[in-house]
Design a protein around this nucleic acid. Structure first.
Length: 612
DNA sequence: AGATCTTGTCATGCA
DNA sequence: GCTGCATGACAAGAT
């Protein structure tokens, strides 16, 4: 039927047909379909004018009502708030809370059967019993009409904002049948319905949705009611709400919602346990975002509460307590506790750091004795039958230069306890990856070779029953290393081996760093060489260009010279031969004609040269 | 089998 | 004198 409507204006009927087709195809035209319809626009214009007139009427009535209300209030000169005049206005005062008045009911008395403003207020008072006396202050501010922007800092200002904004009934749970009936009556006010329709129009038609205010200050009653008899009046964009929120809005107004939505809404209201407090409102108004946020917060809180509930159970971890240089006492205890508490904790340190750190995590120390039991080694063995791999994993000191640097730096900065924190995680990784030699050409064979080689020190350490890991021996800071040595009575051979292990381990890393730097220097020099070659090419090209330019200039100069020479005449009017004479310029700028033959014989220019 | 590469180690110097 | 680091030299194994 829309396709057959008469068309006026610039659009032809075919255009409208096309628009309809596109519109039906859900093609976003960027405007509503009706904007292309002249009749529709005209109708909208008329409706809008009617609405404007009604709005003016309404505002006028509002002003009158404000005056009447203000007559019942007095201005508190201290707070600047309007407070009721006791005792006559006490009931009214109790009826006006910020939450309530921001419902901003549009009360008109155009219809005799409609509720009066006072009746509405009374209804509000019954619906929202005052709970806090601090909210009783009322300020009437009509400038905020239709502005749901509510500032928490100005509750009194907002509390009495009278606006055409739709109102919502209180929570169904809190509404008695009588109140619900009263709400129905209130909502049946034609003026209110019109306002609601306006909101609905905006809600349904506006494609951009200015987000409502912060959830904390949102009035839970700021809802929009779907009206079945929606007018198509195009209104100014007041406060619109995304259409996807409509369902949630519906839920807040059971009586106004379609029957099929009613049960759903009530169920939802019950589900949400809507007290419609300022805190609970966002969950309804922003079903996605706020719920996410709130859930996140709640989740966080829950997490925190979980952690908080966990914390007292778990012994509080203090690195100082857990890190003890004595392997026999607190050292491994700390590691164990960390292993238990931080199974996969990254601790903010790259997991790539210092694969060697993996091995100590597997270390199990007894009280000063040698601690690697066979069962432990079997447990750690990823390659049964290879004793070397056992040692490699336990004493792995394979370093990647970068990793080691970071490990060293971490060790230097954070202390050994942080290293201990990393170890529980790292030792769970694949031993091949732990080697730190993930890059080609370090193959598995090389890794095995490295393990074989490294196992020498490890085997030596085991043979001498050195109760430290090679990793510890190498990477502990000097002070810690010395303290570790002092805490254990080692014989000369053990001390020598430990120092050799430490020396070799550090030197190995140093060699790797040195080679890396060397390669970087080579690469840098190669780059510099390339740039120098490019510079040379550029200079050669520039020189060639300059030579060409110079030749051209010489050619032009010679041409000019000959031209000037041809203009010279002797006393008889004859021209000078360029082969016999030449032009020369003296220091004072004078030009002389010099005979070429005599040029080399005559030294005195003044006698031999004649002015040109 | 020899050349080359990679890596660890030692010796040495320097700070 | 000790320690850490850098680097050349060498060796051993891998490619």
């Amino acid at each position: 039927a829309n396709n057959i409507r008469p068309v006026r204006g610039n659009l032809q009927e075919t255009d409208m047909n096309l628009i309809d087709i596109l519109w039906k195809q859900d093609i976003d035209l960027g405007a509503r379909r009706e904007v292309f319809d002249y009749n529709h626009r005209q109708k909208e214009h008329e409706l809008q004018r009617q609405l404007e007139l009604q709005e003016e009427k309404r505002l006028h009535l509002l002003r009158e009502q404000e005056k009447a209300l203000l007559a019942q209030l007095q201005l508190d000169e201290e707070t600047g708030e309007y407070i009721p005049r006791p005792p006559a206005s006490a009931p009214l005062q109790s009826a006006v809370t910020p939450l309530e008045v921001t419902q901003n009911v549009t009360f008109t008395e155009e219809n005799g059967d409609a509720m009066s403003f006072d009746e509405c207020l009374q209804l509000l008072a019954e619906t929202f019993p005052v709970e806090e006396t601090e909210n009783t202050a009322v300020c009437l501010d009509t400038t905020a009409v239709s502005a749901p922007m509510m500032s928490p800092e100005q509750p009194t200002l907002l509390s009495a904002t009278l606006s055409p904004d739709p109102l919502s009934p209180p929570s169904p749970q809190r509404m008695s049948p009588d109140l619900e009936q009263a709400w129905m009556e209130l909502l049946s006010l034609p003026e209110l319905q019109q306002c609601l329709n306006m909101q609905m129009e905006d809600t349904l038609e506006t494609t951009t949705y200015p987000l409502p205010n912060s959830p904390e200050v949102q009035n839970p009653n700021y809802s929009f009611y779907p009206m079945t008899n929606l007018t198509e009046g195009e209104t100014n964009n007041v406060n619109v709400c995304p259409a996807e929120f409509m369902n949630t809005f519906n839920s807040s107004v059971p009586s106004m919602a379609p029957p099929d939505n009613l049960s759903q809404m009530k169920a939802k209201a019950l589900q949400l346990n809507t007290d419609f407090t300022a805190e609970s409102f966002p969950d309804i108004f922003y079903p996605n975002t706020i719920l996410e946020e709130s859930s996140g917060q709640h989740g966080l809180e829950g997490h925190e509460s979980d952690t908080m509930s966990d914390i007292p159970i778990k012994p509080p971890f203090t690195p100082v307590d857990n890190y003890c240089l004595s392997p026999g006492d607190g050292f491994d205890r700390g590691k164990h506790s960390l292993t238990a508490e931080l199974p996969d904790s990254d601790s903010g340190i790259s997991s790539n750091t210092s694969p060697h750190c993996s091995s100590p995590g597997k270390s199990v120390y007894g009280d000063g004795s040698y601690l690697y039991s066979d069962s432990d080694m079997e447990e750690m063995d990823h390659n049964p039958g290879s004793a070397e791999s056992d040692y490699s994993e336990m004493f792995s000191i394979n370093f990647q230069p970068d990793d080691l640097q970071s490990a060293i730096s971490v060790s230097a900065v954070t202390g050994p306890q942080q290293q201990q924190e990393k170890k529980p995680k790292l030792h769970k990784t694949d031993p091949v990856e732990e080697s730190g030699h993930n890059n080609a050409p370090f193959t598995k064979d090389k890794k095995r070779r490295s393990d074989v080689r490294l196992s020498r020190d490890e085997q030596r350490a085991k043979a001498l029953k050195i109760p430290f890991t090679v990793d510890m021996i190498i990477n502990l800071p000097v002070d810690d290393f010395n303290e570790l040595m002092s805490k254990h009575r080692l014989n000369e051979a053990q001390l020598a081996l430990v120092r050799d292990i430490r020396r070799r381990g550090k030197n190995k890393v140093a060699a790797q760093n040195c080679r890396k730097r060397k390669m970087e220097n080579i690469v840098g020099l190669e780059g510099e060489l390339d740039s120098l070659k490019e510079e040379k090419e550029r200079l050669l090209s520039e020189r060639s260009q300059n030579t060409t330019n110079l030749k051209e200039m010489k050619r032009q100069l010679n041409s000019l010279y000959l031209e000037v020479f041809s203009t010279l005449r002797d006393e008889k009017g004859n021209t000078y031969s360029p082969s016999e004479y030449s032009l020369q310029q003296s220091t004072n700028g004078s030009i002389f004609l010099v005979p070429r033959v005599k040029k080399t014989l005559i030294k005195s220019k003044d006698n031999q040269m004649s002015p040109a």
